[in-house]
C-alpha cells in the first residue's frame, strides 16, 4: 500500500503504518491511492445509543473533532485545563453546545473515549428532543 502525504502528516510514518495494519485487509485491498481517505482514527465511533445515531470523527492535528447526533452537527470545543490545582501542567478536554459546563478529558491514551462519553451525555441531555442548527455553531474557545 502507499501512504499519502496526509497520512504522513496525520500519523507520522511509523504510526501510519501501524494504523494501516490495524485497519485490516479491506483497507489494503481497496487499493490505496492519494485520493483514498486517511485511515480512521481508532478513537472514531459510529453507533446507536439510546435510540440515537452518534458519530464521532477525531482530528488529531487540529483538534477540531466532529460529532453528530442523528445526522445533526454538535459543535465541539477543545479546551486546556490544569491537571490539578496550582499545576501548570494541562490536559485537553472537550465541551460542546450541549455539555457546555462539563469538560470531558480526551487524549489518545487513557482518555481516548472522551468524545464518545461526551456524545453519550449529550444524547441523555437531549432525551426525546433533537439538535437544532444552533447546536452546530463552531466556537473557538482557544
Amino acid at each position: 500500500m502507499t501512504l499519502d502525504r496526509r497520512d504522513l502528516l496525520r500519523y507520522g510514518a511509523a504510526s501510519a503504518a501501524a494504523a494501516a495494519t490495524a485497519a485490516g485487509a479491506s483497507y489494503v485491498t481497496s487499493g490505496a491511492t492519494a485520493a483514498t481517505p486517511a485511515p480512521d482514527d481508532p478513537r472514531d465511533f459510529d453507533q446507536e445509543y439510546k435510540g440515537k445515531k452518534i458519530k464521532g470523527v477525531h482530528d488529531k492535528g487540529n483538534k477540531k473533532h466532529k460529532v453528530s447526533i442523528n445526522g445533526k452537527k454538535l459543535g465541539i470545543m477543545v479546551l486546556q485545563v490544569p491537571v490539578a490545582e496550582d499545576s501548570r501542567e494541562t490536559m485537553d478536554v472537550a465541551i460542546s453546545a450541549l455539555t457546555h459546563y462539563e469538560p470531558f478529558p480526551i487524549d489518545e491514551r487513557d482518555k481516548k473515549d472522551g468524545l464518545l462519553k461526551l456524545a453519550k451525555k449529550a444524547v441523555e441531555t437531549l432525551g426525546d428532543a433533537e439538535l437544532t442548527d444552533l447546536a452546530g455553531d463552531d466556537h473557538d474557545h482557544r
Binding site: 486546556q80 490544569p82 490545582e85 496550582d86
Partner: peptide
C-alpha cells in the same frame, strides 16, 4: 488568563479547575 490557569481565584470559581 484562561481555562488553563492553575492558580488564582477566578478559574476555581468558574470551575475549570477544582473545586
Amino acid at each position: 488568563w484562561n481555562s488553563s490557569s492553575g492558580s488564582g481565584m477566578r478559574n476555581r470559581m468558574e470551575g475549570w479547575v477544582s473545586p
